[in-house]
C-alpha cells in the first residue's frame, strides 16, 4: 500500500509535469479558461526538428556533458578520497578552497576567464567549453563523493591490506562498488549542471560550440509556449538518456568484476 502511494507521488511530481509539457507542445491555441485542448498541431516539433543545428547541438550537448562527467570523476575521486581518508593537515581550508568557485558568481569572472581562454587558444573550442564547465560542477562532485567516502569505514582498507591485496585492486573491487550510489549522484548532478549552462557556453564557445540551451533559451523571449514546451521535453529527456547510459555502464562494470 505504502509503495503504491510512494510511486504515485513520484509519478505526480516527476512524470506528470513532463507529460503536461508534451501535451502543451502538441496543442494549438490552448488558452485559459479551456480545461481541455481542442485543436492539435505538430508545429512546435516541426520548428524544433527543422532547426538546421538541432542534431549537431544534441550531439555536442551529450559530448560536452559526458566528457565533463568523466573529468569530474577523474579529478573528483582522488580529491574526495584524500579529503576523507588522507589525514591531511588543514582539511577545512582545503575544502573551502575547493568549494570557492561556487561561492563566487561565475558571471563576475566570466570576462577574465574569456581573456585567459583566448590567450590559451581555447576560446571558441569545445575543449574550452568543457574546461569551463568544470568550474560549476567540480566543487559539487567533490562534496558529494567526499561524504560518500566518509561513510566507508577506514577498517575496510586495513582489511584489504591485511589480506595482501594491492591498493589498486582494493580500490577497484572494494571501494568503488561501495561508492556506487555516490558516484551516480555526482555524475548525474554534474551532467545536469553542464546541460543547463547558457552564459558560460555562449561566452567561451562564442556560438561556435552550439549546445541545446543556446538554441532553446532565446525562445523564452517569445510568447511561443508550444515551442518552449517542446524544447523543455527534449531538455528533460537528456538526463534520462544519460542515466540509462550510466546504469548500463555500471552493469557492464559489475559483470566484468564478477567474472574476474
Amino acid at each position: 500500500m505504502r509503495s503504491i502511494l510512494g510511486w504515485s507521488m513520484l509519478l505526480l511530481v516527476f512524470v506528470v509535469p513532463v507529460l503536461f509539457l508534451f501535451l502543451r507542445s502538441i496543442t494549438f491555441g490552448w488558452r485559459y479558461p479551456d480545461l481541455f485542448p481542442s485543436d492539435w498541431s505538430m508545429r512546435a516539433w516541426h520548428v524544433i526538428a527543422g532547426d538546421p543545428q538541432i542534431l549537431q547541438a544534441l550531439l555536442t550537448t551529450m559530448l560536452v556533458g559526458i566528457t565533463v562527467v568523466a573529468l569530474n570523476l577523474l579529478l573528483g575521486i582522488p580529491a574526495a578520497y584524500a579529503l576523507s581518508h588522507g589525514r591531511l593537515k588543514g582539511v577545512v581550508w582545503l575544502e573551502t578552497i575547493l568549494f570557492l568557485p561556487i561561492l563566487v558568481p561565475v558571471l563576475a569572472i566570466a570576462m577574465g576567464l574569456h581573456i585567459t581562454m583566448i590567450r590559451l587558444g581555447l576560446a571558441d573550442h569545445i575543449s574550452g567549453v568543457i574546461l569551463i564547465h568544470l568550474l560549476p560542477t567540480l566543487p559539487y562532485t567533490i562534496r558529494v563523493l567526499r561524504s560518500g567516502f566518509d561513510r566507508i569505514a577506514p577498517g575496510w582498507r586495513r582489511l584489504g591490506d591485511t589480506l595482501g591485496a594491492p591498493r589498486i585492486t582494493l580500490f577497484v573491487t572494494g571501494l568503488l562498488p561501495m561508492m556506487r550510489p555516490s558516484l551516480r549522484s555526482a555524475a548525474v548532478l554534474a551532467f545536469v549542471i553542464s546541460l543547463s549552462q547558457y552564459v558560460l557556453t555562449a561566452i567561451i564557445g562564442g556560438g561556435q560550440v552550439t549546445t541545446l540551451p543556446l538554441l532553446y533559451y532565446p525562445f523564452f523571449d517569445s510568447a511561443d509556449q508550444a515551442v518552449i514546451a517542446g524544447f523543455s521535453v527534449v531538455f528533460a529527456a537528456l538526463p534520462a538518456v544519460f542515466l540509462l547510459l550510466w546504469e548500463s555502464l555500471m552493469a557492464g562494470f559489475t559483470y566484468l568484476l564478477r567474472r574476474t
Binding site: 538546421p52 543545428q53 570576462m111 574569456h114 581573456i115 583566448i118 590567450r119 552564459v199 555562449a202 561566452i203 562564442g206 556560438g207 561556435q208 552550439t210 543556446l214 538554441l215 532565446p218
Partner: peptide, 21 residues
C-alpha cells in the same frame, strides 16, 4: 552561412574581451 543565436549584450561583451585580448 550559419546564424549563431546570441543576444546583443552577450556578443558585445565577447567582442569587448576579444578587443582587449
Amino acid at each position: 552561412f550559419s546564424r549563431q543565436p546570441m543576444d546583443a549584450p552577450e556578443f558585445l561583451s565577447r567582442l569587448m574581451t576579444e578587443r582587449e585580448a
